[in-house]
Nucleic acid binder design. Sequence first.
DNA 1: TTTTATAGTGTAATATTTACACAAAGTTAA
DNA 2: TTAACTTTGTGTAAATATTACACTATAAAA
Lengths: 233, 233
Amino acid sequence: MGKEKKYCYEYPRPALTTDCIIFGYDFGELKVLLIERAHEPFRASWAFPGGFVNIDETSEEGAVRELYEETGLQNVFIEQLYTFSDVDRDPRGRVISVVYYALVKQSEYKAVAGDDAAKAKWFSINKLPKLAFDHEMIFDVAIKRLKSKIKYQPIGFELLNEKFTLTELQQLYETILGIDLDKRNFRKKILSMDILIKLDEKQTNVAHKAAWFYKFDKEKYDSSSLFTLLTPK
Amino acid sequence: MGKEKKYCYEYPRPALTTDCIIFGYDFGELKVLLIERAHEPFRASWAFPGGFVNIDETSEEGAVRELYEETGLQNVFIEQLYTFSDVDRDPRGRVISVVYYALVKQSEYKAVAGDDAAKAKWFSINKLPKLAFDHEMIFDVAIKRLKSKIKYQPIGFELLNEKFTLTELQQLYETILGIDLDKRNFRKKILSMDILIKLDEKQTNVAHKAAWFYKFDKEKYDSSSLFTLLTPK
DNA sequence: TTTTATAGTGTAATATTTACACAAAGTTAA
DNA sequence: TTAACTTTGTGTAAATATTACACTATAAAA
C-alpha cells in the first residue's frame, strides 16, 4: 500500500490547498504567524500555515482545520482573501490555493502553537524572512487588504482583547495604517460611531491615570448599515 | 477511447472551474449575460458562462478564455470575485469554481455572442430567471461587490463607451447604486477628481442642447493614489 | 509630597458636502 | 420663422465634518 494512485479522472486536475495569513498584534507591532517547513519542497523555509483541502470539506473548512492543527487556534475571525493559481507556483505540480486571512485576539496570541512538532513563530511584518512558494506575493495581497479593510469595517477589535482602552485601539489603527492619529479626533470619531460600549472597569496597576475599558458592540454594528471611513490626521 | 480515466492521483481531487459574471449597461439598465445550458446538469437552465480550467492555465486565463469562447468578448475588465467550494454545489461531484466578474463596454454590448451555438442573453438584474448551481448566491456576491467597488474605484467607465457625457456617467452611478444623485454636486465631485478629459466633441442628433463628451484619463488615475468616495445625495 | 506618565476633554478654523433654480442651446412642431 | 420642448451646464450659501491644538486629572513610583 502507501502511494497507490487510485483516484482517476478523465482530465488532469490540480491539487487544492488552502493557506492562512494569521495576523496578530503585540507590543505595538503587527505580526504574522509562520511555520518552518519540515518537508520538501522549501524544507526549512518559512511559510504561511496551510495544507491540502479534503474532498469532503469546503476551502474555508480546510483553512479552519489547518489553522487548528498547526496552531491550536479556534474561533478566530477568518475571511477569504484570494485564490492563487499560477501554473508554476508549486514545484510539486499544479496546485491552486484558496487563501484566507485570520485575525487573532491578543488573549490568544501567546497560546498559539503550544504543542506541535512544526515550529510556529510570530514575525513582525517588517522583518519577515524569505518565504516559500509564492507566499511573498500572498503576503502583499493580504497586508493591502487588511489596510484597506480596517478603514471601513471594524475588524480591528479582532486583534485586541475583549476589553481594550481607546489608546490601545488608536495604537492598533496607527500601526496598521502606518500613520499617526490625533487622540482627540480619533476618540470623537470612534465614539460617534456608536459601536463601543464603555465598561464599568478601569485599568489597574498602571503608573498613571487608569484608562476606562471598552468593548465592541457587535450587535449594534451588525444592525447599522455601514461603517464610515476613518481618515488620517 | 473517449472516456478513459487516465489521470490518477494518490488522493481525490476536486475539478476546477471558473465562472464569470458579465455586467453590461444599456438603456439605463444594469444587465448580466447568461447562457442557456445545453447539457445536463441543469440543462435548459440559465447560468453564468464558465467551464473547466485547463491544467496549463491560471483560473484567470481560463475565465478569459471561456469568456471569449462563449461570448466572443475580448479585452474586457475582469477581476477575481470569490472562490466557491461548497461540497454539494455541483451534482456531478466535487467542483470548485474561481469566479470572476467582467464589465463590458456599451460599444461591445451588442456584439456579444454573435455566433455561437449556446444561447446567450442579457438579463436585467431585476428580472433574472432561476439560475443553475449556486449561481444565485454567486450573483448576490457579485452585485454587492460591484456596488461597493464603484464607490471608491473608477470602474464605471468600463461599462460606458470610450466617450461619454457626464449625464450618462451620472445615470450609470444612479443605476448601480440605486440612488439619485444631484447633477451639480455629481459634476463638481467627478471633475474635481481630475480623472476625466473633456473632448473637443459634442453629442449630435439630439433634440436638445448637445452635451460635451469626456473620456477617462487612465494614466492620470493610475498615477494618483486613491479614488475618493462618491457620496449619495 | 513631588515627579512621572498617561487619560481625558473642547473649540475655533478649515474643508467638504449638501440643497437648490435658471439661462443657454439645440431640435421639433406649429 | 417662431414657439415649444428638452436637456445641458453652472454658483452659492448653509450645514456638516474634519482638522489642529494644550492643559488638567489621576495613579503609581521615587
